[in-house]
Design a protein around this nucleic acid. Structure first.
Lengths: 324, 324
DNA sequence: CTTTCGCTTTGAAACGATTTAATGAATCGT
DNA sequence: ACGATTCATTAAATCGTTTCAAAGCGAAAG
């Protein structure tokens, strides 16, 4: 059933080696022969077997991209950026979702290791980089995205999240907010930790300002809205909110504006994180800390081709809209 | 550099075949030997070469999922559903984005063909199913998602989009809307076409109701908002809007509510499509036609394992919220 | 007329895992 | 104690492609 080079060779009246050359190095083969091989391929409906090709080459032509959460548009943008850049190098990007599950992350790393991927780009779940270091030691280039690693077998592309946290809070402080709350979680997620840390420092430097921490279990719209509703029932409310990402911010915004007795930003100002497409489109357009998502993805692909251990860091930027 | 079964075999003092058996059929190998092999694997840091394994097996353990637009949370949900179901069968789902580009779609189909994927699940770009039919003819099971195909080498999982369009408009009609507009595009996208067609029929059956068509180039928040802004500048406005998907609906809603002189649903009612997470969280919670996204994904994986040519169709459902 | 050069093409050897039939060793029943 | 039956292991074949050294062959050079 399976058509192989040998069959093509027979029909074209040449050897298997020549078929391979006609396909991969047409300049080494007489024009007329190339044509004959092409015809045979069409006739038989031959499709190259990538497994055999890879086995010989020792390495595949695809790079794995492991994201924390496919539903977060931020990662979709990272994927887009990577995809676009990879196309130029003749690589394919295959995205997979760790869904914030350690087991799943591990399995995906193993999968790409076994596939001898050309590279793996990942947003790691926690600080436990062991699986990725192992991967790198096995010769698969690894680039961590959105992670400020220090491990030197690995390259990283990141955005300074502490600075982002600081910028967000400084924006709130500049508006006059003094009772600031950070809404995010889970706490062991590095992004959450660093953004909070940046916020903490900014508040510490501002006389008279206080920072409260509101924990949620997941960075989703639903959890954000639930947190917002809890906030509404309190007598003493913060006057400035910093959400760990835009999904949470969107949820908060919904809850706060729903009843109509809290005005945003009048009573409570709000800053989100990621500047996803939706941010510009919320009830009150969302002020957010922007990360250059597509650029992160594209840069990650570039780093795959270079020596490991390179660290590129981008600067976040506040996109001021109406909520703060 | 590369560690192979042979190296493991040497260290464990057995033959290559035994190493393979220890890995894949431990019950055929003496317990003590399995242990010795395991130890050797750990010692050498052996990682199985999937290319070789596949070459022998003739088939890979991963299924490709080709989506129209990674940024649309609907597809993220489909991917989630597929992923969860695939895990049980020991398959991995690799997602790739055709980004509504024909060339890209073609390249991805070729890629999965060459990889001899266990299956391909795709949301096809247009009605041109030739590439997918070719794939199926080569023995790769193909399931089209969100497509009501009739081609019988292919299985499909779909949601009745015409019915969805009808339901959406009936909802608007029931509220008393009579000047209804459909906002969507591009016209050759099957989803757009069918949803419009359903809307058209529903309007045709309602005495005194008229349907207008507002074309946009892309089903995104931005295009929706632009359409909404154009709408605001008109003197004669529709009293009911049906958006081809929720992203567009969110954009429309933004534009309409921004200025404050149009009330939703008072002046203009609105129904979206897909019921993405965000839908519940918009300024005015969005009424939307729900498709069981995760179920679509899971079902697609199941169909991969069955005989080709099976067609499963789900029913859409209106989720009534505040906009209509 | 021989030598040399350049261009095509070939045949065989990899790549690394799995499988098959065959072999050897141990256990069993009678 | 002997053939029959398990059980564990092995050696060799195989999957389909690419590569590399070698060979074929006609034309140009001497």
């Amino acid at each position: 059933m399976a058509v192989s080079v040998k069959d093509v060779a027979r029909v074209a009246g040449v050897s298997a080696g020549t078929v391979s050359n006609a396909l991969n190095h047409p300049e080494r083969v007489a024009e007329e022969t190339v044509e004959r091989v092409r015809a045979a391929i069409r006739e038989l409906g031959y499709v190259r077997n990538d497994a055999a090709r890879q086995l010989r080459a020792g390495r595949s032509r695809s790079v794995g991209l492991i994201v924390l959460d496919m539903r977060n548009p931020f990662y979709a943008d990272v994927a887009r950026g990577a995809d676009a850049r990879a196309e130029r190098d003749g690589l394919s990007v295959l995205v997979s979702d760790s869904a914030r599950d350690h087991g799943r992350e591990r399995r995906l790393v193993d999968l790409f290791a076994e596939q001898r991927a050309s590279g793996v780009i990942a947003t790691p779940l926690t600080d436990d980089l062991a699986p990725f270091e192992a991967l790198a030691r096995h010769g698969v280039p690894v680039v961590l995205v959105d992670h400020e690693g220090d491990s030197d077998g690995l390259s990283t592309v990141s955005v300074d999240d502490r600075k982002g946290g600081r910028l967000a809070v400084e924006r709130l402080l500049a508006r006059g907010c003094r009772r600031i709350a950070f809404v995010g979680g889970p706490r062991d997620l590095r992004q959450v930790r660093d953004r909070f840390e940046g916020a903490r420092r900014a508040v510490a430097e501002a006389p008279g300002a206080a920072l409260e921490r509101i924990d949620i279990d997941d960075l989703t719209v639903d959890h954000g809205r639930a947190a917002g509703e809890r906030l509404l029932r309190r007598s003493e409310r913060p006057d400035g909110l910093f959400a760990a990402n835009d999904l949470v911010a969107v949820g908060l915004l919904q809850a706060l504006t729903m009843t109509g007795d809290v005005r945003v930003p009048g009573d409570i100002a709000l800053v989100g994180y990621d500047d996803i497409d939706f941010a510009a489109s919320t009830v009150v357009p969302l002020t957010s800390v922007r990360q250059p998502a597509e650029l992160l993805g594209a840069t990650a692909i570039e780093l795959l081709g270079r020596a490991p251990g390179e660290h590129v860091r981008f600067e976040p930027e506040v996109i001021g809209r109406a909520t703060a």
